[in-house]
Write a protein that binds this DNA or RNA. Sequence first.
DNA 1: TCGCGATATACCGAATTTGATATGTGGATT
DNA 2: AATCCACATATCAAATTCGGTATATCGCGA
Lengths: 310, 310
Amino acid sequence: MQMNLKLDQMRLIAAIAEHGQLQIAASVLKLSQPAASRMLAEIERAIGSPLFDRHPKGMELTAMGQVFARHAHAMIVGMRDLTREVEGLRDGRAGSVRAGAVTGPALGLMVPAIRRLKALAPDVQVSVDVAPSAALVRGLMAGEYDLVIARLPEGIRRSEFTIQLAGAEKIRFLVRRDHPLAGRTRLPLTALAQHDWIIQDRSAPIRHAVEDALARTGAPPSSNVIVTSSLLMMMAFLSDSDAVAPMSEEVGALIAQPGMSGFAMLDMAEDLSVPPCYIIEAKGRSRSATATRLKQQLLAELAQNGAAFR
Amino acid sequence: MQMNLKLDQMRLIAAIAEHGQLQIAASVLKLSQPAASRMLAEIERAIGSPLFDRHPKGMELTAMGQVFARHAHAMIVGMRDLTREVEGLRDGRAGSVRAGAVTGPALGLMVPAIRRLKALAPDVQVSVDVAPSAALVRGLMAGEYDLVIARLPEGIRRSEFTIQLAGAEKIRFLVRRDHPLAGRTRLPLTALAQHDWIIQDRSAPIRHAVEDALARTGAPPSSNVIVTSSLLMMMAFLSDSDAVAPMSEEVGALIAQPGMSGFAMLDMAEDLSVPPCYIIEAKGRSRSATATRLKQQLLAELAQNGAAFR
DNA sequence: TCGCGATATACCGAATTTGATATGTGGATT
DNA sequence: AATCCACATATCAAATTCGGTATATCGCGA
């Protein structure tokens, strides 16, 4: 399907969704009602499905319309953010280092490196995001980050990046402290299948790795699953249920400090891991002094603890 | 500034940013080089600032260009996501309940309600996001959520929503267990000002409330601040430093379970809170049966624990 | 049955956009 | 100095977009 839609079309859909009537939406957008009607018809032709159910007193979104309206809204907000940020840049706001990392290296590398950087230069502005690799590399390419610690997405053109191996990331399963499986050792993966799972979105590498490992054992995945990427939600569900949640070892270690936590990591018969991570910067990008210093701290951390984070 | 830019313009900027040369970008977009050059010129005229520094062998992004390219990339990705989701809807994927909550009510209300719902209907698809109120209500309006638990953004038209009071949200300060302030009681806010802070983004209500309270005491905020909204990053920084981090009481309670955690919540002389939360649904929206059931569980949770979450 | 309110369609003209080719300009390299 | 490469500008023609007014259509309520 070819959907070369325009922002004004997004605005129309969002306005109709918000106001419930084409005429009001048209007025808001400073269009005549027939112009709005025709624009809507063109959008629906491009989509190949109605976006609104028509009623004598107005319209309401169809299921497809809800999907479209959500995206339209995000686009409108995105344009607003762009405008704001472009204007803000005119105010000459000082640079900062903007870094991102996937969860394990966020803890294992980024946190100590930032801590060291702040020790040396307490007033630098540091902004850190934790996100999946694809989003991080996308952000890096788009100039949103100065550097990221992430996996290499497929098809990445290595020649355009500076890439430094940072290490592998192991998967552990977190449970509440008094979970039936908590005290056992060398658990097979199949032992987990009968429990509820709190698991990440389908795009997460941890989920891929876990599902692949389950597939190799022949055990079906649990049928009772709650999908969330929020660590908070995971901890909350785990804390008073028999659910299990896969996560990176570093995250698990932080949450389940031995003897001091309401959580525990399961002892598995077989290690699971996800592909290794790298410190990635975009070539040809002017690098702020602060970003250079953060990179230096990351390399120092690797030199010191390389064996620990492998 | 009026920036009525087009997606094709975004694509051009993203392509130049990616390839470094106008001619290659033009080719990728199936344009002639002069057409691309003029399109770029028009974008830069609308922006009022160059997006690229020109060099004999190509162009590279200016600071403004990096901002623009990042947003352009997000728009392009958004359009791709829209296309994918529109197509996916044709595959007839079954409905699910999509809920969102700000952090405190995510724990205090949403988690038990979802747990009850799953007990009654183990195979329903539940998706939960934790996000700020503005984003949640935006998502609700755009059809991204069936219901949310959030604060009421300014200017919200109450007549368009079903709004049910869910309670207030208290702020606590989290520290590591052996923090110098951990054992003290009735701490004044000024006692925290000398420590490092791990704090949320400027738009977060918790940050507003904390900065307002600090302003009332006359104490300046800490000059040594790390900004992150990632709970994981907060916990990591707190776990081996003397930093403090404000967060909702429910989140703090989950992390700092008494006697069992590497963290503790500070005992403050004065309670801080953020404005109350509500269960919010959009009127005129066809509600899935699962969403209705989740709403029922939320109301049941409120009826049972209303005093606890107030 | 009639009137109302809301959307849909027909028709038209004006404006804008689009993108080509041809050519100019500037910096780097040989 | 000549050449090359990459971007910028001029010119032109074609296509598309845009959005108005006028009017038709439909469902609901009185």
